[in-house]
Every structure is written in structure tokens, then in C-alpha cells.
Design a protein around this nucleic acid. Structure first.
Lengths: 136, 136
DNA sequence: AGAAACCCTGTAGCAGCTACAGGGTCAATA
DNA sequence: TATTGACCCTGTAGCTGCTACAGGGTTTCT
């Protein structure tokens, strides 16, 4: 006999909100669990493990679609893991791009900020003029 | 006589999609323009300038609420520009935090990636195991 | 028995758009 | 003149990844 537990307990175990678990089920990331006679969801260890996997992927900023792919790859243990490697590479590349973008933004904002050090009136403020002129 | 133009022309001038312009109006970032007899929106130069300001702020990744504040500050040209400076400082700080987060993620992903260099079967893949074990 | 704590479904909200559907208007061409 | 095509209008739904209800049923504790 496997031990089963209700959604609140699964939420505690995994640090995932109850409503998020139901959301993952709706989105097809978690398979629909068994139901009790009162229609309560009954989970087992396999669900808990799968949910932890999902949460770790999310903490690595992967999207739900990417996670779906990883779960699918994981579900065929004798298949090649080339897809896993490729997915991670793409994800890392995406992150690097986003970081570069944000850094460029930060530099632009620092430049803009340097246009007004004192507190003047708005009409004299170098920042407002800088945005309006727009070297960005 | 001021020259006026329709929404499509404003979109071309500013590089902003027509539906985005209507969206900004709904959100109160752009004042409702005059209308032609056929109920078409009629814009003038002031609208175009304001929209360019908004677009430049967006390109600096500011949120619409932040932009609202800047527009309000700009609208009182004799008021102090201290609020502008503070807003920019907050925004720059937020960016710096987000960059740090993403860089930490990237390092974690690179670590994970290093667990599988060859193409193995999924069940042997160090990455899948790494996610499951979860040092993140 | 009654109240608190849990569970259910379904829907709406967040940001900042984008993409329709289903209509009206206008200019130019055949 | 009729019709095509390009434009405009409103209103609504979709995207991502949840979160927060409302309005009910169930279980558990006292």
C-alpha cells in the first residue's frame, strides 16, 4: 500500500502553493491524480518527485513549455539526452542575451542619471530633457 | 492651423503599433484626441511628442506606472525634479538586482551543463540527475 | 453540534501588449 | 457607379505564471 496525501500536504512538502499545483495539472505538467470519495486529489511519491523537478526547473527560470520538454525527455530513459543538452544551451544563451540587454539599459540609465545631480525645477532637469532628446 | 493626422500615421512616425496607441489611451498615458466626423482619432504634434517620450521610457524598460509619474513630474515644469532623480535611482537599482539574479542563474545552469558533455541516454544524463538532486 | 480548517470548481486579475471579430469609412480604380 | 482595398472603430480574448477570490462541500477537532 502506497501512502497517499492531499493537496495541502503536497504543497507543504514541495513549498508550492496549492493553487499552483492545480494550475500545473490544468496545464498538463502534473498528471491528474486519483480522487478520494469526496473528490479530493490523492497524490503519491511519484507526484511529489515530479513536482520537485518542476519547481527546480522553475527556480532556474525555465518556462513551462521547456519543462514539458524536459519531462518528456526524462520519460524515455533509453532515449538520447542530446535534447536535454540542447535545451540547456538554448536557455543559457537566452539568459546571456537578457543579461547583456539589461546591462546596456543600466549604462544608458546611468548616463541619463548623470545629467542631473542637483535638485532643480522640472523644466531645467537634464534627465527629462535627455529622455525627450533620446540618445537611446 | 495645426496639422493633424490619423492613428496609422502616428504609428508610423513613432514606430508604435496602432493597437498599442489605443491601449495607452485606455490606460491614461495618452489623452483622448479629437475625433473626425467619422469618429477617427485626430492627433497633433503634442501627442506625437508625448508618445515618443513614452516609447523612450519603455525602451529603458520603465513600467507604465513609472512613466505616468514621469509625465506628471514633467507636467509641472516649475516643480522640483527631485522625484525624477529618485525614480531613476530606484529603477537603476531594480535593474542591478535583476542582473545579479540572472547572473546567479546563469552560473547555476553552467554548473548543471557541465554534468553532461557527451550524448548519453536520458537515464544516464548528469543534467537530469542534477536537476532531480537539486543543489539549486 | 458547531466551528475551523481543509478541499472543490470556476472565474478574474496582474503587465504590456497582440490579435482577432465584426463592423464602418474613404479613396481610387474599372 | 460599383467595387475593391486600405484604413479606422469598439470590444473581447489571448499570451505567461501564477494569485486571489467567490461560492460551495467535507473533514476534523472540541
Amino acid at each position: 500500500m502506497e501512502k497517499t496525501f492531499k493537496i495541502g500536504e503536497l504543497a507543504l512538502q514541495t513549498g508550492c502553493a496549492v493553487e499552483t499545483i492545480r494550475y500545473y495539472e490544468r496545464e498538463g505538467l502534473l498528471p491528474p491524480p486519483a480522487r478520494s470519495s469526496a473528490n479530493y486529489r490523492l497524490y503519491d511519491e511519484a507526484h511529489a518527485e515530479r513536482l520537485m523537478f518542476i519547481r527546480r526547473c522553475r527556480s532556474l527560470d525555465m518556462g513551462l513549455a521547456e519543462i514539458q520538454q524536459l519531462l518528456a525527455l526524462r520519460a524515455t530513459p533509453d532515449g538520447s539526452c542530446g535534447g536535454v543538452n540542447a535545451l540547456l544551451d538554448r536557455h543559457i544563451e537566452g539568459l546571456a542575451q537578457r543579461i547583456a540587454e539589461l546591462e546596456s539599459l543600466r549604462r544608458q540609465l546611468l548616463d541619463l542619471r548623470s545629467l542631473c545631480h542637483e535638485t532643480l525645477t522640472a523644466k531645467e532637469c537634464g534627465i527629462l530633457h535627455g529622455i525627450t532628446a533620446g540618445s537611446a
